[in-house]
Design a protein around this nucleic acid. Sequence first.
DNA 1: GCCTCGCTATACAGATCGGTCTACAACCGT
DNA 2: ACGGTTGTAGACCGATCTGTATAGCGAGGC
Lengths: 212, 212
Amino acid sequence: MRELPRDRLVSTALRLFSERGFHATGIDTILAEAGIAKMTLYKHFASKDELILATLKRKGDELHPWIAQRVEALARGGRNRLLAIFDALREGCADPNFYGCIFANAAAEFHDVDDPIHAEAYRQKRWTEDFIHGLAVKAGARSPHALALQLCVLIDGAIVLTHLSGNTEPIRQATVAARILIDDSLPKPGPKPGARAVRPVRKRGAKSGRQR
Amino acid sequence: MRELPRDRLVSTALRLFSERGFHATGIDTILAEAGIAKMTLYKHFASKDELILATLKRKGDELHPWIAQRVEALARGGRNRLLAIFDALREGCADPNFYGCIFANAAAEFHDVDDPIHAEAYRQKRWTEDFIHGLAVKAGARSPHALALQLCVLIDGAIVLTHLSGNTEPIRQATVAARILIDDSLPKPGPKPGARAVRPVRKRGAKSGRQR
DNA sequence: GCCTCGCTATACAGATCGGTCTACAACCGT
DNA sequence: ACGGTTGTAGACCGATCTGTATAGCGAGGC
């Protein structure tokens, strides 16, 4: 069964804004692809900016449960939840329709912090930080706020560089870094405080120096 | 004395593209602010895209020497060069005209990896990674490629989140994380007797990922 | 039947987009 | 004084932009 016009509009807008950017995507294109009349759009939204806001909210509504669900599923398999985030990240960026983080992209096109679109993008981004903070608390991190923000920095950096380079090596290295930071932030179970357990086991995968 | 028309054009375009984004900035605006006739633009550049390419190159030409110079200056003050990058980052993001990384922003507006603008943005980004890699090698890092990429991830993540949030806490936490990763990647320094043997630098150290 | 309501279809407004064209003025070395 | 180069000034092109106005269609409720 077909979506309601408003939902179809937001879905199509989300897809096109993701693929082509916000300013580069015209109203008419969205309407044509959604098969919707112009007046219907302006019945539901006062302006294009309002439509953009709705697409960002929609993205959050889709993304956040997905993240939580993936982390839980991986955790049931025995994976550390904080590290599972990076597994989910890898999965998300492997999607053929990966165009970077739409919230960061929105901020890149709407620089003004007071712009409602920029503000909404930031609001959505904070969900991730809050989510990770919750996991960090449960894991018993020494400074859950600091660790959560550090992991967020790794995540967003990995997304940006994966998008720029077109390969997922940044995500791999972000995961490596995350493991070190997590270990460093968790109370040591092991013998001597300050001594890090080091185990350099790693098969030689695809060479990293090739494309970079 | 006034800049040459072409240079004035690129300077103005760089400023406006940074402030407002690429698609959102029209040719006419740039021409008006630069005080230049339209025909002069199209004498020097075949299209707006070519002008965008020139602004990205210009930004690299300005940014890269600045980074190298700041790191050297801080190093003369005794600062670890790898950490000095994050001091420079903090300085750069404190600029009132900070609108995120223009290379990442360019990629956000020109998603296609084959787009010359996307490719140029990536090319400029790699300079940073190469620069950090050089420092990592000189510092004797075990896996300079891995460490360099990890620090790049931290840098870009910190830029994105600082831009999104409007505060510099992400940079602080990125610096904290960087110190941990650097310490972890460097052979333990000598002064402490005996406890941990200095690890030899790994040759062809593609990816000795660290496991817990 | 009839009326309302949500949506479609289409034409239009006014602005702006990237890009082309012509005409002309200032400066150059010769 | 000469022609060539380089830049300016501004009209102009067709396309596209966001947003509005008008008219009609079809289904559900009464």
